[in-house]
C-alpha cells in the first residue's frame, strides 16, 4: 500500500453541548481520490474545517506527511500542503478570474515591497511566470476565455471550478473539495469528474471530496468514508459501500 499523506486519528469537536464529530479515523494515501459522504448535518464540512484549522479540534490528531498540525493555523496548514474549496462558494468576488488564481500563488511568487515599487526585474519575471502558470490552470478548468471578468459575474458552475483552480494554485499535497458538483448539470458534472482525475495525475496530489452526487462519488473515488451523526458509519470501496446495509439504511436509501 502507498504512503499516507493525511492521517486523522480519534478526531472530534464539540460545539457547546453538541458533539458534531467524534472519534473519526481516516487516511488519504498518495495519489488517491477518497470520498466523504453522509446525510445533511453529518459533520462532513466540519471535518474539513478542522483539517484546515478553521475550527480547532477538541480531540484527536491530524498528521500531514507524518507531521502533527496541532500548532498550525489556517495559513500555516495551507503552506504545509492542504488546500480546499468551500461548500458555500467563497471567491474573491471583486477580483478578476485570473487574479483569484494568482492570489492563490501568493506564497510561490516571492518578491519584496521594494521590488514592487521599483518594478525590478525580479518582480517582473515573477509576475510573468505566475501569469503563465495561472493561464495554464484556467485552461484546464475551461475558464481561460473569462479570465478578465470579475469572479462574481461567472455562472455558478464556473465559480465552483474557479475555486478548485485557486486551491490548486497553492500547490497543495492534499486537495479538499466540499461538494464540487453542487449546482452543476449532469454534463458539467461529467466534465468535472474528468478534470478532477486529470489534475490528480498532472499535479500528483491526493484528493478528499465531500459530495452528495452518488454517481460522481461511486465513479471517481477509490475509497469512501461514510459519516453519520458525526461518527464513522462505514468505510470501503465504492462497491462495498453501495452494498452496505447500514449505509443504505442511513443515507443511500433503496
Amino acid at each position: 500500500m502507498s504512503r499516507p499523506v493525511l492521517e486523522v486519528s480519534n478526531l472530534g469537536i464539540d460545539f457547546g453541548g453538541l458533539t458534531a464529530v467524534n472519534n473519526l479515523n481516516l487516511e488519504v494515501n498518495e495519489h488517491e481520490i477518497v470520498g466523504l459522504i453522509g446525510p445533511n448535518g453529518a459533520g462532513k464540512t466540519t471535518v474539513f474545517n478542522m483539517l484546515t484549522k478553521v475550527y480547532e479540534p477538541s480531540r484527536g490528531k491530524i498528521l500531514l506527511d507524518g507531521k502533527d498540525i496541532e500548532k498550525m493555523n489556517t495559513v500555516e496548514v495551507n503552506k504545509a500542503g492542504v488546500a480546499r474549496t468551500f461548500q458555500n462558494i467563497r471567491l474573491f468576488a471583486n477580483l478578476s478570474v485570473i487574479d483569484n488564481v494568482k492570489a492563490g500563488m501568493n506564497n510561490h511568487c516571492v518578491y519584496s515591497v521594494f521590488d514592487t515599487l521599483l518594478h525590478t526585474r525580479k518582480r517582473n519575471d515573477s509576475e510573468k511566470a505566475i501569469n503563465e502558470k495561472a493561464e495554464e490552470l484556467l485552461k484546464i478548468f475551461n475558464l481561460y476565455e473569462n479570465r478578465n471578468i470579475t469572479a462574481s459575474s461567472l455562472p455558478y458552475g464556473a465559480q465552483r471550478r474557479l475555486e478548485i483552480a485557486r486551491a490548486l494554485a497553492t500547490e497543495p499535497k492534499v486537495l479538499l473539495l466540499d461538494e464540487p458538483a453542487a449546482g452543476m448539470n449532469p454534463q458539467e458534472t461529467d466534465e468535472l469528474m474528468n478534470t478532477i482525475r486529470f489534475v490528480r495525475d498532472k499535479f500528483n496530489i491526493c484528493i478528499l471530496l465531500i459530495e452528495h452526487d452518488m454517481s460522481l462519488v461511486m465513479n471517481i473515488c477509490e475509497r469512501i468514508y461514510v459519516l453519520n451523526y458525526g461518527t464513522l458509519l462505514a468505510k470501503g470501496s465504492p462497491d462495498e459501500i453501495k452494498n452496505d446495509e447500514r449505509v443504505i439504511k442511513a443515507y443511500l436509501g433503496d
Partner: peptide, 10 residues
C-alpha cells in the same frame, strides 16, 4: 473580499 478563503490559500 473573503477573509477565510484568503487564509485558506495561505
Amino acid at each position: 473580499d473573503n477573509r477565510i478563503a484568503a487564509e485558506s490559500i495561505g
